[in-house]
Design a protein around this nucleic acid. Structure first.
Lengths: 233, 233
DNA sequence: TTTTGGTATTAGTCGAGACTAATCATAGCG
DNA sequence: CGCTATGATTAGTCTCGACTAATACCAAAA
């Protein structure tokens, strides 16, 4: 624990790697994620590579080494434990915790981590529905898909909402679009444009959602949560 | 909130200024307090002066300007609120909180500060008996004196124990020398050497204390004067 | 007055991490 | 098959804080 810049890079790489399913992460993407110029990123990525935390294949992008992944998970764990703790114990709202946790995560010791974990009853999910990595580095597999990937008429349960912008989060919360909520995709165009959704089972609560927002909402199937037939790409 | 190095310097200067009652603080003292070379301190003090946070009178030492004092108090407030919160809410022991708070204090936002303050019921004293500056910068005046300044035979109440070393703190706690404890100075030599003390009212609990340790213990007179509110443990 | 010693400051360097400007590599298109 | 857009890298610079070595200041002792 300790090196701010380093940890931020690892976290960013981890997140990018997981939202662009598994592929290597480009320098530019990292730079954008951190609000930094691409040369700065290149520079830093070299150092991370030298430290054995990432694999940097020339002009191809980077991937975390096992060591790097472990370090990244540690940071993510701190972040999500903090988010949950701040909302549970100190009354933060889900739209503001992110920023606070971002600052605190780098100062969390092993001991504090353990105490937070215990105080929360060893939770597995943070306030946005993201999984909290376990102390041993295990992460519960997320098997949810972006809201727009539902078929028109299909219903789902909101699993997580992965945006950091407080304003958007507040807006979504107003609509009732928080983890656990039932949502039905009424209709949408194939690849772009807004979608119409119904939140909950009530008749009245139909809303139009911009695509941008919708793709940050992840749902799991509404029905009986079953079967390992994981064929849905 | 934000600049680690800067805040550490301000905090150090503040503390030094208050333990050597009111006088200006020397460069060397600052350097020692921060574990840094004197040139580094000189260098940094210049920057603090340029930023208007301290007055740097040539070869005479530094004092905090009003702005600097305000900033320093903010850091101290964060530190002490954290120490108290960590012990109250997360079960930390008084000997280990210091290090944890040292790391976290720089990442505490106004909002978190306020929430901690509220969760703790607007406390005025941290686990070591040090006063917690109020949000407006007010600090309750400490009116206690070092244990060795008692006259032989005189009794007092431990007000605060101002050491950061976990081992020493654990030792003192073992002896029962924690804020709120009654202590009687049995006898001692004028300026150096160990002292004999009795802790509490019992007959059996007499101990010999090294001078070093004893000067970190501050007592107030045993008699009447009292803030009625404080339920110190 | 000169010496000596403690303390502060200057001078010069270094590493981390950021930046801009310029160059290079590659994929896709014409 | 070459050209161009996109993205990555190199080169060079800056600031922040730290460091060592050398120097300057002041105070008491000789």
């Amino acid at each position: 624990m300790g090196n701010r810049a380093l940890e931020d890079y690892l976290k960013a790489i981890y997140k990018l790697a997981h939202e662009g399913h598994g592929a290597a992460v480009g320098t530019g993407a990292v730079a954008r994620a951190l609000g930094v110029s691409t040369p700065s990123a290149t520079n830093m990525l070299k150092r991370l590579a030298a430290a054995g935390l990432i694999e940097h294949r020339a002009r191809r992008g980077v991937t975390l080494t096992p060591t790097g992944e472990k370090a990244a998970l540690e940071v993510v764990r701190h972040h999500r434990l903090l988010e949950l703790y701040l909302t549970e114990a100190l009354g933060y709202s889900w739209d503001t915790v992110h920023a606070e946790a971002d600052r605190l995560e780098h100062a969390v010791s092993e001991e504090l981590e353990a105490r937070l974990d215990e105080a929360l009853g060893y939770p597995t999910v943070d306030p946005h529905g993201d999984p909290i990595p376990a102390a041993d580095g295990t992460v519960r597999a997320v098997r949810d898909r972006p809201l727009p990937s539902l078929a028109p008429g299909q219903a789902g349960i909101v699993g997580r909402v992965s945006d950091a912008d407080p304003e958007k989060l507040r807006y979504l919360a107003d609509l009732g679009l928080v983890p656990g909520a039932a949502v039905t995709l009424l209709d949408s165009l194939p690849f772009e444009g807004p979608l119409r959704v119904r939140v909950g089972d009530a008749e009245g609560s139909e809303h139009v959602l911009g695509r941008e927002l919708a793709t940050d909402i992840f749902v799991r199937s509404a029905g009986v949560d079953r079967d390992p037939a994981k064929g849905n790409r």
